[in-house]
Design a protein around this nucleic acid. Structure first.
Lengths: 91, 91
DNA sequence: CATGCCCGTGATACTAATACCGGTATAAGT
DNA sequence: ACTTATACCGGTATTAGTATCACGGGCATG
């Protein structure tokens, strides 16, 4: 087991992540945002649909920049949902 | 060529990125931070040394959380340098 | 109505990230 | 001096992200 397959939780988190991006995209087209971020439209689509649940950091950073989103907010929005059962590892 | 190999610029950006993480880690050990972030120590080492120049978003998010860093600051610090080979338009 | 364009999508190809293993070097503690 | 702990390094295995190709649906135009 050298490379653990993505957990269902990670998949779901990716879906939520993509949903956030799609929501932030609003009326803008995929190709427009993708071009602004410097990634291919297909990649953006995969991220939005959750088929790429764990995209690269800089890809996300570029998309967030193109959409005017904060990476911290984005990560927090997904992390909160991901650990909604009760994450008591910090205290 | 369906998957463009990483550019030298991306490699350098990864090195800077890793340097930032290492700096933020300070005196803490790799295994400690890696465990806190939920990634393997080898992965953290590869990211810090620049051998993994484009880590996954959530991996970076977890590391930043473990280190108390802001993702936006982190991305901005790398993006500035990654832009061109010498943008010194400081007014 | 046919054609072309934009959007979104599925399939395919290829590289890279993640994790594990063994070995090595340095520093500290006993 | 031996052991322990930390970090570095090479290789290996497997999954996953990213880009190109090719297709279907909707809309405007000729």
């Amino acid at each position: 087991m050298v490379r653990v397959p993505l957990s269902p939780q990670e998949r779901e988190r990716g879906e939520r992540f993509g949903a956030l991006l799609r929501q932030a995209r609003g009326e803008r087209s995929m190709v427009d945002v993708a071009a602004a971020a410097g990634v291919s439209a297909e990649t953006l689509r995969k991220i939005e649909t959750g088929r790429a649940p764990t995209p690269a950091f800089f890809t996300v950073a570029a998309l967030a920049h193109a959409l005017g989103l904060s990476l911290d907010v984005l990560a927090a929005a997904c992390a909160e949902d991901a650990g909604q059962g009760g994450e008591a590892l910090s205290a």
